[in-house]
Amino acid sequence: MLGRKNYTEEEIDHAEASVAEQLAVYTSLTGAIAGEVTGKKVFAALEDFEPLFFGNMVLALDRYFVHRVRAVTGKDANPLNEVEIIVDSLMNNGGVLRGISVLKYVPDQSVLKLEIGDPIRVRADDFTRLSAAFFAELRSRFLA
């Protein structure tokens, strides 16, 4: 597929609804567990599961718009590029944040405030903030 310079409101809304649905199901599941289950093993398993699940949610978030072109996305520190850097690091660097030479990454301007070399452990609240910023930036730069 060729690079995309814009997306329709329907495409963005669909992706945002899908992400929101998965986040709601996760929240429902963890709420049910917290209300019904006791035991250190269960909560330890949930602690281990959360960053894996939300790391994969970042991958899914990126996939909807993977063909976005750099000319529109820019090379500056923004949530679209932060997601790209996180995805690259999850896929190709063992989950440790590394920069991409063509992108400017400024930890203080990022949503998650990760430093280069930090392990990526995205939690539910992190993903909520990151996805909201991603969709806002996507709309401002790519909405057809």
Rank of each mutant, 00 (worst) to 15 (best):
L46A: 08
G35T: 04
A44E: 09
S28Q: 15
A45S: 10
V58F: 00
L52S: 12
R68S: 10
T27H: 11
P51N: 01
L46M: 13
L52T: 11
D48H: 12
A45V: 05
A34W: 10
Y26E: 00
V37L: 09
F54Q: 02
G39C: 03
F54C: 05
G35Y: 04
T27V: 13
A60G: 07
A34C: 04
E36D: 03
T38C: 05
V37P: 00
A34N: 10
V42G: 01
P51D: 01
V42K: 00
Y64C: 09
V66I: 15
K40G: 08
T30S: 09
F54G: 03
A34V: 07
E47K: 13
I33K: 02
F43Q: 06
V58R: 03
A34P: 00
K40H: 08
L29F: 12
V25I: 15
G39Y: 05
G35H: 02
E36V: 13
K40T: 13
G55M: 00
V58E: 01
M57S: 07
T30V: 14
V37E: 06
D48A: 15
F54R: 06
F53H: 10
D62L: 06
V69Q: 08
V66Y: 12
R63A: 15
L29W: 05
F65Y: 04
Y64Q: 04
A60L: 15
T30R: 13
K40V: 12
D48V: 11
T30M: 14
V69M: 05
F43I: 04
V69I: 12
H67V: 11
L29C: 11
L59N: 09
L59V: 15
R63P: 00
K41P: 03
S28I: 07
Y64A: 08
G35W: 04
R68G: 07
A32S: 10
I33P: 00
K41E: 05
E50P: 06
E50N: 05
F54Y: 13
D62M: 10
F43K: 08
V42H: 10
V69C: 06
I33H: 02
A45H: 07
T30I: 15
F54T: 03
D62Y: 12
R63F: 13
T38R: 11
V25G: 06
R63G: 06
G55F: 03
G39E: 03
T27S: 14
T30W: 08
F43E: 03
F54L: 10
E36A: 13
E47R: 15
K41V: 10
L59P: 00
V69E: 06
V69A: 05
F43G: 06
R68N: 04
E36P: 00
G31P: 03
F49S: 12
L52V: 14
T38N: 06
P51H: 04
F53L: 10
E50Y: 08
T38Y: 11
E50V: 05
R68C: 04
E36W: 07
R63M: 15
S28Y: 12
K41L: 10
V69N: 02
H67A: 13
L52G: 09
S28P: 01
